[in-house]
């Protein structure tokens, strides 16, 4: 297996699917000549031409709306919204049109549309370029929401997303683009809706996705030195959520911490936590704990930005507190 970056893995998924299926095309802001704001689509314009790699005007609503129109009339569009923060501009298209059209038409249409976007803090870009809005999308029946943490997952999940006949919101993380991981040279796909146990352990289950998964693995490594064993579960797909794998892990560890970068109130962790309470309450030896982003607009200052999201150290501390509390029960 080769080691490639998350960016390259996504780029390969796009190229391979465009090669495989002539109906697949890309459109969005700065995706063609520039190669995408984060360089993800670099080289595709040169390889596939301007018909299939389309630069658009700054018109998020038209990008998503036209993506839908093309998807229900024979094409398989991949549209890029440069920052997840810009999704507000196309939220009506996504929530009222894209997600609902199949149901409203009594199942008489399919929507093979991928909306690729990118989010998260870490580059001190402030409140309009650093958000984590996945909780908006999991609240919309009809969508599937994918948030990969590794190059391997990113490639396999994106290829599956492009082959899906349902609309997908595929959220990458700006701080992961340069991270590297092993990715097979040969063809593979990964199923949506299946969580991955990224590290097996005994003492506490940590659920983390996207960039937070990396922090969780770092915390696990550090705690291992002290003899504390974390099981790290990556849902990979937030909608649908693989609650079975999560419950299976909790049956083993009896303790769970959810790590999420989005704001705590009404966040993804609230949904995951409640599903745990509904499905695994009897296995829990301690209350579900959430480590989440602060309930604030993302601040610019690097010092404040770091405070606004979970960190490896906060995970380590939370695990120790949970285990200490658990021993006194």
């Amino acid at each position: 297996m080769r080691e490639i970056t998350y960016r390259q893995a996504i780029n390969e998924a796009l190229a391979e699917e465009m090669e495989r299926d002539p109906r697949v095309f890309i459109m969005g802001e700065d995706v063609a000549i520039y190669g995408g704001a984060y360089g993800v689509t670099r080289g595709l314009y040169e390889r596939f031409g301007e018909e299939r790699v389309r630069d658009t005007a700054i018109s998020e609503a038209a990008i998503v709306g036209a993506g839908l129109g093309a998807a229900i009339t024979g094409m398989r569009p991949i549209v890029e919204i440069m920052y997840v923060d810009f999704m507000g501009l196309c939220m009506d298209q996504l929530s009222n049109q894209v997600a609902k059209i199949r149901y409203m038409f009594g199942g008489k249409t399919k929507v093979p549309l991928v909306v690729r976007t990118e989010g998260g803090a870490g580059r001190t870009l402030g409140a309009h370029h650093s958000q984590n809005l996945e909780a908006w999308f999991i609240h919309i029946p009809g969508l599937k929401v994918v948030m990969p943490s590794t190059p391997y997952d990113a490639k396999g999940l994106l290829k599956s997303s492009i082959r899906e006949d349902n609309p997908i919101v595929f959220i990458e993380h700006k701080m992961l683009y340069n991270t590297k991981g092993l990715v097979p040279g040969e063809e593979y796909t990964l199923p949506l809706g299946v969580a991955d146990i990224k590290r097996e352990g005994e003492d506490v289950t940590v659920i983390a996705y996207s960039r937070m998964l990396l922090f969780a693995l770092e915390a696990a490594q550090e705690l291992a030195k002290e003899g504390i064993s974390l099981e790290v579960v990556d849902p990979r797909t937030l909608l649908p959520l693989d609650i079975e794998t999560i419950v299976g892990s909790i049956r083993k560890t009896n303790r769970v911490i959810i790590v999420e970068e989005d704001c705590k109130t009404g966040g993804t962790g609230a949904e995951i936590g409640m599903q745990i309470v509904e499905n695994a309450f009897d296995y829990l030896d301690a209350p579900v704990v959430r480590l989440a982003g602060a309930d604030v607009p993302m601040p610019k200052s690097p010092v404040l930005e770091e405070l606004a999201i979970p960190s490896k150290d906060r995970i380590v501390t939370a695990v120790k507190e949970m285990l200490a509390g658990g021993s006194s029960l």
């Binding site: 709306g65 229900i72 024979g74 094409m75």
Partner: peptide, 15 residues
């Protein structure tokens, strides 16, 4: 609400 859909259908026809 139909404007994006119609425009995308036009794009699909062209492609």
């Amino acid at each position: 609400g139909g404007m994006g859909i119609a425009t995308g259908a036009g794009l699909s026809i062209k492609m």
